[in-house]
């Protein structure tokens, strides 16, 4: 197994209060890992450290052998933040949202085939030309996920991907992420509903008090009120 994501001795705080302190974490290629834990445990902060949106006060984050701040490392990450694409003012089509995930440089390549594949992966093939704000909240969330999936990046990080998505579609999405991991990607899913991924994930990481630990599938069932 090759390490796709490694966090070593991470410390990060807002002001003087550490949200993450002394955290070590590793995710290998080909793994589907669920990161869960109660509100305020530092899950989203850890994710933002990994994707380079935050810099640790102490410690290192390495993505595919490069520092997380390295542009090459960042281009290897497909990132889907929580929620819908909410800042939009002007009409933007679903295809435009998804295609924006393909842009990797000043004038990044665009392959329409990749967009079609990503749209199909989230079940939005028929809605590519629609204005994203005319979709339901769940469909908007699926468009955000498709933006992360487009282009087959080797590291996928999705924050609450099943939140707001109807239960009927969740198995399809979970299966797609499992397929990506089987194809060699490192997939990290932050979820308050790890049950969605319980049967297909390789590891469950439980985050509490700024630290993370493997809880394993059996132990997970003994935890009460995970993240809720």
């Amino acid at each position: 197994m090759t390490a796709a994501i490694e966090g070593r001795g991470l410390r990060f705080g807002y002001g003087t209060v550490p949200v993450i302190d002394g955290l070590d974490v590793r995710v290998d290629t080909g793994q589907l890992v669920v990161l869960t834990g109660p509100n305020g445990s530092g899950k989203s902060t850890l994710i933002r450290l990994v994707v380079g949106l935050l810099s640790p006060d102490r410690g290192d984050v390495v993505v595919l052998g490069r520092p997380a701040s390295d542009p090459v490392a960042r281009r290897s990450i497909g990132y889907a933040p929580q929620g819908s694409p909410g800042r939009m003012v002007l009409p933007v089509s679903v295809t435009e949202v998804v295609a924006s995930g393909l842009v990797k440089g000043w004038s990044g390549p665009r392959r329409d085939g990749d967009v079609d594949i990503a749209l199909a992966a989230v079940g939005l093939t028929e809605l590519g030309a629609e204005c994203v704000f005319e979709l339901s909240g769940g469909q908007q969330q699926r468009a955000v996920i498709a933006r992360a999936l487009v282009g087959d990046r080797p590291v996928l990080i999705l924050d609450e991907p099943t939140t707001g998505i109807d239960r009927a579609f969740r198995p399809h999405l979970v299966g797609e992420l499992r397929r990506r991991a089987d194809a060699g990607a490192a997939v990290v899913v932050v979820s308050h509903d790890p049950e969605d991924f319980h049967d297909v994930c390789d590891r469950i990481l439980f985050m509490e008090d700024g630290r993370v630990r493997d809880v394993g599938h059996d132990e997970f069932h003994t935890l009460e009120d995970v993240g809720r």
Partner: peptide, 23 residues
């Protein structure tokens, strides 16, 4: 014309564009 796609990516979601390696 040269910067259309990256400018649009940033306009749609600055955080995701930054996370994806755009300057």
């Amino acid at each position: 014309l040269v910067l259309y796609r990256p400018l649009l990516a940033v306009a749609l979601d600055e955080d995701t564009a930054r996370a994806g390696g755009l300057p």
